[in-house]
């Protein structure tokens, strides 16, 4: 007789914790398995991401307490159950993941101490340099055109993805800058799902945009509605137009949630802390979740726009 293999989770994202408590009973399917992470998908198409310790914990995710290299004890399409007990079980593999006494992790930023304009300008400038120096395979090399996007040419593009998307991207940024939220929403559908990677580059970019908007402290009452509609249209476009992993990332971003490393970069940017930014951005590029450079490019673009809003006010 086979014995039951027991794994332990060491950390759980608060949103996932709440979700489990609310649901009581869940039947899930293994969606995908990578070296250091695996995704489960529920019947309602909610994605749950499990990672090993060397990988950053994600919103709606948990970290397993295992030694690496780790072989996941299940395969794609296996059924995983949650029955109200603090554990997940994989009946066909005689395996379970215990969720008792697991540390909680907050998937969003709290207590942000917004830095002054000068400091934030400096961190933004530094971030652009970091992204520009990174050898990007996605669209992040376009970071160079942020200062003069009215006059871009295809000569600014170093790969086929950039060439393809340049025009639409500029249109999108222009609309956001003008706070023409309806146009921005339309233009976003021309971006979502485009680019290399499991989370296509433009999706990483777009989650950075949404995340930045969420933490933008200077929203005026008059524009709240327009913004909310824009965000809603991006989230719903993502559900139709891109991969499930990408769509959930965008949804989380709309709610102010992101993986730990991405949040660190954002915090440093908002607080205007150069040293912290340096470390976090470097890690996000090297070791972060996929397509870190496209995400950072999105932060640069959006924060540049936010700066111009402030100046014009």
């Amino acid at each position: 007789m086979k014995t039951v293999r027991t794994l332990k989770a060491s950390r759980i994202a608060e949103d996932l914790h709440t979700y489990f408590i609310e649901k009581r009973y869940l039947k899930m399917r293994v969606h995908s398995v990578f070296q250091t992470s695996a995704n489960l998908v529920t019947q309602d198409d909610v994605l749950i991401t499990m990672v090993t310790a060397s990988r950053d914990i994600m919103p709606m995710g948990l970290t397993l307490d295992v030694t690496e290299p780790f072989e996941w004890p299940f395969l794609i399409d296996d059924t995983v159950e949650y029955t109200g007990f603090p554990m997940l079980s994989v009946p066909s593999r005689q395996c379970r993941i215990e969720l008792q006494n697991v540390k909680r992790w907050t998937p969003y930023l709290h207590n942000v101490k917004y830095g002054n304009a000068k400091a934030r300008l400096q961190t933004l400038k530094r971030l652009k340099v970091i992204v520009a120096k990174h050898d990007s395979l996605g669209i992040a090399s376009l970071v160079n055109m942020l200062d003069r996007w009215e006059n871009v040419t295809v000569a600014d593009c170093d790969n086929v993805y950039c060439r393809f998307i340049l025009y639409d991207l500029v249109q999108f940024l222009q609309a956001v800058k003008m706070k023409d939220w309806r146009a921005a929403g339309n233009q976003a559908t021309m971006l979502i799902g485009f680019g290399p990677g499991l989370t296509p580059s433009c999706d990483d970019f777009m989650s950075a945009v949404l995340l930045s908007l969420y933490y933008d402290e200077g929203v005026e009452k008059s524009e709240r509605e327009g913004r909310a509609a824009f965000i809603e249209s991006v989230v719903s476009a993502a559900k139709k137009q891109t991969t499930l992993v990408s769509a959930s990332m965008i949804q989380h971003a709309a709610e102010g949630k992101a993986s730990g490393l991405y949040l660190c970069v954002l915090r440093a940017l908002l607080e205007g802390k150069i040293d912290a930014l340096e470390d976090a951005a470097t890690s996000a590029l090297q070791f972060g979740a996929s397509s870190g450079s496209d995400f950072l490019f999105g932060l640069c673009a959006m924060h540049q726009i936010i700066q111009t809003w402030r100046v014009s006010v």
């Binding site: 086929v160 979502i192 799902g193 485009f194 680019g195 296509p200 137009q241 891109t242 991969t243």
Partner: peptide, 14 residues
């Protein structure tokens, strides 16, 4: 030329 990616509409456009 070779492209590898997820089959989103925009990628197919490319």
């Amino acid at each position: 030329e070779v492209l590898v990616g997820m089959g989103t509409d925009l990628n197919v456009d490319l």
